[in-house]
Each structure stands twice: as C-alpha cells, then as structure tokens.
Computed example of a mutant assay.
Amino acid sequence: MEEHSLAADWDALVALTTVQISVVQLDNGETRIRQEFPAEEVLESAAARLRPILLTGDACFYQKALAALGYFCQASPLDTEWVKATRAEWRLRVDPSTPEEAGYWVMISDMVTGEDKGLDRHKLAMAWIYGDVVHHDMARRQEGDAFGLLERFRGAVPLVAWAMVGTIELLNYIRALHKDGVLQLRQEVLDERVALKSTTWEHSGQVFFAPAGTEPPANASTPLPKDWARLEKTADLSRFRTGFGGQLLRAARSPHMSELPSPEEIETARTPVGGWKRDQLAAWSVPWPPPKGWKDELTERWKAARKDGTPPPLPSPAPADFAQQTLDFG
C-alpha cells in the first residue's frame, strides 16, 4: 500500500479519509453540494491491493497482524495500549456495527411504486469493492444497485483511503519495533520488492532461435539442442514474428476485419506519383519498406475473409531497430 500512487501525497490521502463537501448557495436559491474524488481506476487498484487486508480469512488480514503485534508487545504497556486503540479504531472505521457509526447513509424513494430504500456508507462501499471491483459478492452488489455506481464509489473512497492510512501506519510501527529489537524480523521481509518501478523489460545477453517445432532446451543450464542458431547482428529481423498474428479466438469478430483493404481501396490510396504513403501501409500492417508481393498478399487475405469470415493474420510491422523488436521463437 505504501507504494501505491495514492500514498505518494500523504496529506491528500489523509484528506480522503474524511467526507469533504463543498456547499455553494446560488443566487436563484439553489444549493449545490459537491465532492471531488480520485479517478475510479486509481481507487480500484488500491482496493484490489487492500482486499487481502480486509478479508478476515486471509493470512494478512489487518486484525491478525495487529493481534500478532500485541502478542510480542505484552511486556510494553505503551505498545499494548497502542494496539488496543488501533484495533478499536479499525473496527469503527473499516467494520462499523451500526449505520450511525458508518458516517452517513443514503435514502431513496421510488415515486411510482412508493418503495423506500436506504444504505449506510459502509454497505455502499462494500457493494462497490466486492460487487463492482472484484465481482465476488453479487448479493452486496444487488443491494446497492438502486443507488447507482457513483453513490457506491462515493461511499468507498473514505473507506479505502482510511484502510490505506491504517495499513501504512501499522507497517511503520512494525518497522520501529524491529529497529528497537522488540520484533526479530528477517531483513528481507522489509526489503523485498513489492511493486515495479519500471515496466520496461530489458536484458543483455545472447539470442538463439530455431524453426517452430524444434526441440526446446531441457532447462536453463543445459546446452541448446541441435538446430538452434545464434542471432547475428546482420540477421533479417523482419522474419521473426508470432504465428498467431494477434487474432482473437473468434476471428470473424476481430477488429482486423475492417482493416483489410479491398483491391479497389488499395488502388484508391495511391499517391499522385503512383506509390503509397508509409502511414497508410502501417495502417494495413504492411512493413516498411513494403516487401515484394504485399498487394497480392493483402488481396488474398481480403478474399479469404469475405469467403469464410476468418481473416488470416496480419503481418507484424518491421521494427525501427533491434532494441524495439520482440522475437517469438515458436
């Protein structure tokens, strides 16, 4: 949770734990009530990370960690008191027992049927987390259905934010106890990487390839079987491509159907000097420079698509350089 983007601005995260409403009185007598929240996708990812901490049956459930901490702090009255106070606050904020403890509740009435419904903030939040985000508890989701997605999301924001704050504060308390020698933890527990700083995958090494169907290596340390060759610097990288062509399982519904140009469309796209623009060829997934016979190949795929609704795979665009090429060795 400490690595999540919402925790990057601690003051902003703490502010989300409270219900902050701006009220504006307009000249016509109307009152405008407004709340602003983070993007839904941001809160969804935070809720997904929090879910094991909220689940009573999970090994890292917050109260289980707190109970373990209390066991090791029995000889310290101050630490024991902190654990008790934290346990009570968690229950009040994350698992309130009454609608009054939940902070607020929403009531709606159907003016046609006369049906009345009401849910407190906590139940609305749980409907969003377990119904809208993880799709685990449809009973909760249906209970909050009448109030709409935004109302469920609004209820979840302070819950998720406060649970994040509580989790990070517990982590810092554990760090302090470890530093003071109260807890004896392996250092790798605190140092283990839990979030990616970069999502670019890049390694240095040698690349070997073989035709599809060639015997693969038995494991990472054994020599490569025969027919595997080292990729040389002068190799033609354009011939390395996936055999699936990015097609969907139901190829007839693939978006590539609309990308296959007809022979007439190919001719219409010619430039005044008789060629084709590079971006137009890229839209048809034709590499640059275009290989010999590319028009015939597109035409054959277009005809096949109209015949059985299944377009053959589109070719992979040629890379600008080696560093950008992804190789698939079958």
Rank of each mutant, 00 (worst) to 15 (best):
R250T: 09
A229N: 12
V286A: 06
A269H: 10
L260G: 01
L196I: 03
V182Q: 03
L185G: 05
M257C: 13
K226A: 15
R175G: 02
W288C: 03
P272H: 13
E192W: 03
Q280N: 07
H203P: 01
Q206V: 11
R230N: 04
D279P: 01
G275H: 10
V286H: 04
E169W: 06
W288N: 04
L196W: 09
G274M: 04
M257N: 14
L260H: 05
R186C: 00
R239F: 07
E259K: 15
I174P: 01
W228L: 08
A195Y: 02
L190A: 06
D279C: 09
P272K: 14
T234K: 05
R253M: 12
L183P: 02
G274D: 08
D180H: 03
L237F: 05
F208R: 09
S221N: 10
A251Y: 02
V207G: 00
P225N: 09
L237G: 00
P290N: 11
E202I: 04
L248P: 00
A252I: 01
P289Y: 07
V286C: 10
R278Y: 00
E267A: 13
L248R: 03
E259W: 11
A176Q: 09
Q187T: 03
A269T: 11
T222H: 05
K226D: 15
L185E: 05
L248D: 08
W284D: 12
D236L: 02
V182C: 01
N219A: 13
D296G: 15
P290T: 08
L224P: 02
W294S: 09
P255V: 12
Q247V: 12
